[in-house]
Design a protein around this nucleic acid. Sequence first.
DNA 1: ATATATTTTCAATATTTTTTGAAAGTTCGA
DNA 2: TCGAACTTTCAAAAAATATTGAAAATATAT
Lengths: 168, 168
Amino acid sequence: MKLPEAKQQFISSWGAFGTHWGINRTMAQIHALLLISPDPLTQDDIMEDLNISRGNTNMNIRELINWGLVERVILPGERKEYFTAEKDIWKVVKQIVKERKKRELEPMMQLLDKLEDVEGDKKDKKVKTFVDTVSSIKRLGLQADKTLDVMIKAEENWFVSNLMKIFK
Amino acid sequence: MKLPEAKQQFISSWGAFGTHWGINRTMAQIHALLLISPDPLTQDDIMEDLNISRGNTNMNIRELINWGLVERVILPGERKEYFTAEKDIWKVVKQIVKERKKRELEPMMQLLDKLEDVEGDKKDKKVKTFVDTVSSIKRLGLQADKTLDVMIKAEENWFVSNLMKIFK
DNA sequence: ATATATTTTCAATATTTTTTGAAAGTTCGA
DNA sequence: TCGAACTTTCAAAAAATATTGAAAATATAT
């Protein structure tokens, strides 16, 4: 397989992959394109390469910047803005985990805290099942939260080699 | 907070949560409802409780069954089918991990294998960046694959206590 | 200060995804 | 074998989400 076709496939399946994770297709495709681009690209480069409109490109680049996955780069003597993606995949994964933890896990935990205190007779089967379910989700969520915190701070080598000790 | 309100909130935010994970709102809501129901429910119970149509209920229950999260139950002497969800959250998590690994991680790995073999001069910066990116995603993916396999087989206690050893 | 290049916004449009509900299909007891 | 109870299917409608493109805003060189 030649580079242009491989590139095409990579971008397209990274896009499809993203949609399974609540990330929109275009955002994931732009990310993919930047991941495999040795040099920073402009909005126009991206628009042209992916065949998408200026507005769409702009919005999704900004969203990637919010997620901490893409950076603006100013090249000296150039008028246009350039964009580049973090290439260290371990850092990318940690950044995504960090953001999703903040955006999804933490609010869910707060809700579960409230729901665990539901009023009512614990002898009532419905109340009991509700509280038991909520509590056990919370317990696992707390464990996940702690584990992810360690992961976010870890170096890849440290993390992987420690996992290996347990899981070899 | 009283049970009906708590139940409402749990179902609705479990639904919203699901949409961030590529699961549709209704499917997640049905799952939530079954998680907190002490006894199995019929399609009609679910339709009525969540205010959704028969077809929608049916399709999403079947999808939950495909995912291995919900089971059909036949109560002796009853004509209708009943449905129940696995209540052990650790098992639920393992089941979801197992399915997503099969549906998403494994196909992605196969693709990366092919893409890594791209033809072309490794001195070419574009080829090099492409191959490096693909290889490093593959490397991390393989590690994730192995780790998830261990997790899928593990008992919760074993898994958590081993994590604690590393992450205390 | 002005003209020009570039970025951002957002209402309108297009696309994708989800939901509905009625019809077709199936199961099962009598 | 029939008919009522129940389940499944799927085309059409609705809802949600993503995309466009032109106008407005902003930045920069001269």
